[in-house]
């Protein structure tokens, strides 16, 4: 576990360094994720690798990690009430636009290149 966590923190440290040296406004952890992905591909890491096991354990409880940030919402309830309309419209509107953009672009490009489409029957409606 500690070996895997050391890897994760090592990649984050590298990410932070890259971000500061190149001076890009991207979170260091995201660059760390890229570096970690490259490492995983290169080493063809399997499920038993320390890095993979530590990551899986950490991601299983990802929600716990943003409780401290989430609690801050209590301090912003007044803002939320005052701007309820723009917030709701912006959240839902951009979500739908984004969903349509991703899904239609992917399907369109697949057709364009004539790649076999994994067109499993969706049965008309969702299963519960």
């Amino acid at each position: 576990m500690i070996r895997g966590l050391t890897f994760l923190i090592g990649f984050q440290v590298l990410g932070e360094l890259v971000v500061r040296i190149v001076d890009v406004p991207v979170p260091g952890a995201v660059v760390g994720m890229l570096l970690c992905f490259a490492w995983l591909r290169r080493t063809r890491a399997g499920e038993s690798a320390a890095l993979v096991r530590a990551s899986t354990a950490l991601l299983r409880h990802l929600q716990l990690l943003f409780v401290p940030a989430g609690v801050g919402i209590v301090a912003y309830l007044a803002t939320l009430r005052a701007d309820a309309v723009p917030i709701t419209a912006s959240l839902l509107g951009s979500w739908l636009l984004g969903l349509v953009a991703v899904a239609w672009t992917a399907v369109l490009l697949e057709r364009l290149f004539g790649a076999p489409r994994d067109d499993l029957p969706v049965a008309g409606q969702e299963s519960a």
Binding site: L5, L8, I9, F11, Q12, G15, P27, G28, A29, V30, G32, M33, L34, C36, F37, W39, L40, R41, A45, L51, V52, A54, S55, T56, L58, L59, L62, L65
Partner: peptide
């Protein structure tokens, strides 16, 4: 932070 780095694993 480390959990964000760990997102590389599902990607992999």
């Amino acid at each position: 932070g480390p959990a964000t780095v760990a997102l590389a694993v599902p990607l992999h």
